[in-house]
């Protein structure tokens, strides 16, 4: 039997690959409680990786899509609308399967894009790796959900703010940067917080769908499921994952409400919006 310290050493970084700890995962009767705690914790590395990168990378795309959907020119608003509908209207789980099978079909050598003076090779084979391909799907997906929130916020920007900007002679990008964007962020922030929470939760799906776990390095739920298959006891591993995710959720709420306070600092106290935790979306 391993001691707790030993299983910490063996498994806390195991999700990074089998060179970072014990090569083989614990099996059958050999599994200790500490193994479950640490291996599942190690899987959280990937949940955080996917969530943080997806949120960061999707942010600008979401802003662009929201502004695009708000545009009065159908040539711009229609494609943005379609994009948002596609990713919000279908399950994330199926999107993983679909995009994985698309990525598999791309040529392995990469695609050569002929620019006039040089040839750009797009390394497509990375896309079949979860760390790249699934991240791309997550980025597109959360960009669509976030864009819808930002779009809602754009629509409810007080008319007076815009008129004030006009009165100062602001136009185009300056007006957007100084007036529209900050207000949009302030209005959308509470629901954006929730979106980030759902996104973090939905990172548990990707190793359960099409993307394979190389060298058995997967996310928290991947390991929890592994333990349940090995021990036939769902009452240990799943509550551990649940506990970790509740902590993660609280952490996100804490971090985002700090920003929320900052965004609302110029408003009188009674008018400030509070973040309410209302996760309701599943993809």
């Amino acid at each position: 039997m391993r001691t707790c310290a030993e299983s910490f050493d063996s498994y806390i970084l195991r999700s990074l690959g089998r060179d970072y700890g014990e090569r083989l995962l614990p099996r059958g009767l050999d599994i200790t409680l500490c193994d479950q705690f640490f291996l599942i914790a190690s899987g959280l590395i990937w949940n955080v990786y996917f969530a943080v990168l997806a949120v960061v990378l999707a942010f600008s795309l979401a802003t662009a899509l929201a502004v695009g959907k708000f545009s009065e020119k159908p040539l711009i608003s229609r494609p943005c609308n379609a994009f948002i509908f596609f990713f919000r209207g279908s399950p994330l789980f199926i999107q993983f399967f679909f995009f994985y099978s698309v990525f598999v079909l791309l040529p392995r050598q990469g695609i050569n894009i002929n620019l006039v003076f040089t040839t750009l090779t797009v390394e497509t084979h990375w896309l079949t790796r979860a760390q790249v391909g699934a991240l791309l799907v997550l980025v597109l997906n959360t960009a669509a959900y976030t864009a819808e929130l930002f779009y809602g916020a754009l629509r409810s920007i007080p008319k007076g703010d815009l008129e004030a900007a006009d009165a100062y002679g602001m136009t185009g990008f300056t007006k957007f940067r100084i007036v529209v964007w900050p207000t949009m962020m302030r209005l959308a922030w509470p629901s954006y917080t929730n979106e980030v929470i759902f996104l973090t939760h939905s990172t548990t799906l990707l190793f359960l769908s099409a993307f394979p776990a190389r060298q058995q390095s997967g996310d928290a739920l991947y390991y929890a499921r592994y333990f349940v298959d090995q021990t036939f006891n769902p009452f240990v591993a799943y509550p551990i994952v649940a506990g970790y995710f509740i902590l993660l959720t609280l952490l996100i709420i804490w971090g985002f409400s700090l920003v929320n306070t900052r965004l609302n600092r110029h408003l009188p106290k009674a008018k400030r919006q509070r973040i309410r935790f209302r996760p309701q979306y599943i993809r």
Binding site: P234, V241, A242, F277
Partner: peptide
């Protein structure tokens, strides 16, 4: 509160086995 703080997929995996057992 509990259901909403945890990824639902954990419940979908947990509940059927737990009820079955």
């Amino acid at each position: 509160g509990l259901v909403r703080g945890v990824p639902d997929i954990v419940f979908f995996l947990f509940v059927p086995i737990a009820i079955g057992q």
